[in-house]
């Protein structure tokens, strides 16, 4: 499956060399339109009916205008967070799948989310007061945990002036994942019921970030990763085949791998710090996009980012309305949709 699809990637890349711009423009405008529509429609729906006219009426004082506050304080930040996190997770998924040459890789495969979760657990359970700029203590700790995990995996897989070993990357990541998970269990074991409950809730993911402040914290990291993602795709196409043929075609394999690892880890960390580890977005979206547009990363990557945004915003819409006035954790919705879809994909490919 891996070999087939990656060879196809090269063929596609070569065959489609000329119309790539047209295809890119078509795909991006298609998925872009979908993303814009989702992001415009999603804030209009919620557990409470709001009067849009009243919400947008500038003559009413904002401090007492409940409709405006629901729209601008509760829903817009939430939709924006959903779009950012969805885009970040889906595109990191694409990058990790290419980097590890494994279609089952997710943004959480290399231990970044487990590190982030451990950091968050420590603060939720033992309390913490380190707030940095727009970041409150839990995201700060979660980012720190993600950075530690990424640094360990990077150091292990990365020798001086040679390509990264994808095997070492994978094994180190998977091991680190279980190790951090064990530490999380230990930390939870030491804690009080109420805190364990809250910590567990954090693991289910939550896009209700309560304002634009937390988004402002994650945005620079996600944008920086996005900028790196923009120049990666042609290297990813070749990396996906194997490192030797990539370097034979003039790709600086070591550099491309490092940039891929750093940018995808950074996007994942920022997304997890903002909304918790929301599963399945990073694996379902890239595969669905590949089904629709083929395997050329120049198209798959931007399309996945856009579709990831729509997908997560739509899942969150379900999460916040289906059981209203109470909510369903968004991670549960993505899993309920994503799990069966992924199984179907497996059966279909075999």
């Amino acid at each position: 499956m891996i070999e087939g699809s990656t060879h196809a990637a090269v063929h596609d890349a070569v065959a489609a060399a000329r119309p790539i711009r047209t295809r890119l423009a078509l795909t991006v405008s298609g998925f872009g339109l979908l993303a814009v529509m989702t992001c415009v429609l999603a804030p209009l729906v919620g557990s409470t009916p709001i009067d849009l006219g009243r919400a947008l009426d500038p003559s009413l004082p904002f401090a007492t205008n409940v409709d405006a506050q629901i729209l601008f304080i509760a829903r817009l930040p939430r939709v924006l967070a959903g779009a950012l996190v969805g885009a970040a997770l889906a595109s990191s998924g694409v990058v990790f799948q290419a980097l590890l040459r494994n279609p089952l890789a997710t943004p959480f495969t290399l231990g970044v989310s487990a590190g982030a979760s451990l950091g968050a657990m420590l603060v939720i359970i033992f309390g913490g007061t380190i707030a940095v700029g727009p970041w409150s203590p839990v995201p700060v700790a979660s980012l720190a945990g993600a950075a530690v995990a990424a640094a360990i995996v990077y150091a292990l897989a990365n020798g001086p002036r040679r390509a990264m070993s994808t095997t070492v990357l994978l094994l180190a990541g998977v091991t680190l994942n279980s190790f951090f998970s064990a530490l999380i269990l230990f930390v939870q074991y030491l804690a009080d019921f109420a805190e364990v409950y809250r910590a567990t809730r954090w693991l289910m993911g939550d896009l209700d970030v309560g304002g634009f402040g937390p988004i402002a914290g994650s945005l620079p990291l996600i944008l920086a990763s996005g900028a790196i993602f923009a120049v990666l795709p042609s290297s990813l196409n070749l990396l996906g085949v194997d490192a030797d043929s990539a370097s034979a075609r003039g790709v600086d394999v070591a550099a491309a791998q490092r940039w891929a690892f750093v940018s995808a880890s950074m996007a994942t960390s920022a997304a997890v710090a903002l909304a918790g580890p929301i599963g399945f977005v990073g694996i379902v979206v890239p595969h669905l996009v590949r089904l629709l547009v083929g395997v050329d990363h120049r198209i798959v990557l931007p399309a996945s980012a856009l579709f990831g945004a729509s997908f997560l915003v739509a899942c969150d819409l379900v999460a916040r309305t289906i059981l209203a006035p109470v909510e369903m954790p968004v991670g549960v919705v993505t899993a309920i949709i994503g799990g069966p879809f992924f199984l179907w994909l497996l059966v279909r490919e075999n």
Binding site: S47, V66, G211, V326, E327
Partner: peptide, 12 residues
């Protein structure tokens, strides 16, 4: 109950 900011605004 785990209310969202929207629910809190609506319940006032």
């Amino acid at each position: 109950v785990q209310p969202s900011s929207e629910t809190l605004l609506a319940r006032a």
